[in-house]
Design a protein around this nucleic acid. Structure first.
Lengths: 186, 186
DNA sequence: CTCCAATAAGTAAATGCCTACTTACTTGTA
DNA sequence: TACAAGTAAGTAGGCATTTACTTATTGGAG
């Protein structure tokens, strides 16, 4: 096999993303990651130092990609919420990784304050009094993620056998909810 | 020590709630639970069969207490959202247990469909078209929990050094957001 | 060009700790 | 005395991390 450090590094990161999204930091198995990456346990330690170091790298990469692909659009926050929904639909690992991180590695989550500061400032002009920019961001994220955070026992009740496409309906409800939340008080 | 099976059972459940809320199912330690409960590992297996059996019991109990203490109020859903917020503020273990369960034991979360069906029906009359009753429940829960689900890097920006009491402000923002989401379209 | 160190990349097999679960026993209570 | 409640000390397997080693690549000396 041709030797390519960078490619191996990336294969490990990709495998780790899948593994950690599925099982978390404590439940994730280093050996499975190595096997899936067609590499070796030793390389994980060579490149990422430790299991938790690898976890942090996967989280950072997932958040980076999300910030890159779905930047806030202050002029159309409801539309942006729809895009955040779409992103989670396409890359379910991001949300699960974030949840695991929130529970198992809160310190890794507190770190990138600058990213959020920028987003907050970007949204500030669109803040809907008395809700502040941070309020708005917190709730938009919560609503965009709501369908995956809710217990299955509840979300399953929304299934309409008539219309096969539940995803589109959920997306629409997200946009509607954010639109209303931000509309001027009557 | 006086022998009281029921009391031991409850001490174990209480200790398990703390332990699993902090570390999850995979990360929770049976021995720590036994020590904290002033009991013995053996008793855990006598009363709950297995580690995951004990986890399921703690989750079920936490959800039961929440359903009991904060039932939906269809006539004032925004006020109800505030109460859900309060409940999470007072008993942070509930939310963390739910998150762990969602990630580690999704099947345990899908089970109590009846509870949710009842809640859905209760709220149905207050549904705010085009949002369905399930939509409304999903989003209200999401908003009420939003402050704990958001990354610290973001929520920390909301801290206003002038007013020490950030909790009250957060609660108010939850009520406001739900109120708006449910108000009639202008 | 062609070897050939030097080093980067990769591998297999320990090591040693941790931890869920069980066995075999003791103590209190009715 | 019989049984429920409780305890201590295994047992057996799992798993993160390391050690000791092999294989490829490369840049410069001849």
């Amino acid at each position: 096999m041709a030797r390519d450090a960078e490619a191996t590094r990336e294969r490990i990161l990709a495998a780790a993303t899948v593994e950690f999204a599925a099982h978390g930091l404590a439940g994730g198995r280093v050996e499975r990651i190595a096997a899936q990456a067609q590499s070796n346990v030793r390389m994980i330690y060579a490149y990422y130092g430790s299991k938790s170091g690898l976890f942090d790298a996967t989280l950072a990469e997932a958040l980076r990609r999300m910030a890159e692909n779905v930047p806030p659009r202050p002029d159309d926050l409801a539309g942006w919420a729809g895009e955040v929904f779409d992103h989670h639909q396409r890359f379910p690992e991001v949300l699960r990784l974030s949840m695991w991180a929130q529970l198992e590695r809160p310190e890794a989550t507190a770190e990138p304050r600058d990213i959020y500061r920028d987003k907050t400032l970007a949204v500030a002009t669109a803040a809907a009094r008395p809700l502040s920019a941070v309020d708005v961001l917190v709730f938009i994220y919560a609503i965009a993620q709501a369908w995956w955070l809710s217990p299955e026992g509840l979300t399953a009740l929304a299934e309409n056998p008539a219309t096969g496409d539940g995803v589109a309906a959920r997306r629409q409800s997200v946009v509607t909810a954010v639109t209303r939340m931000l509309q001027a008080q009557t």
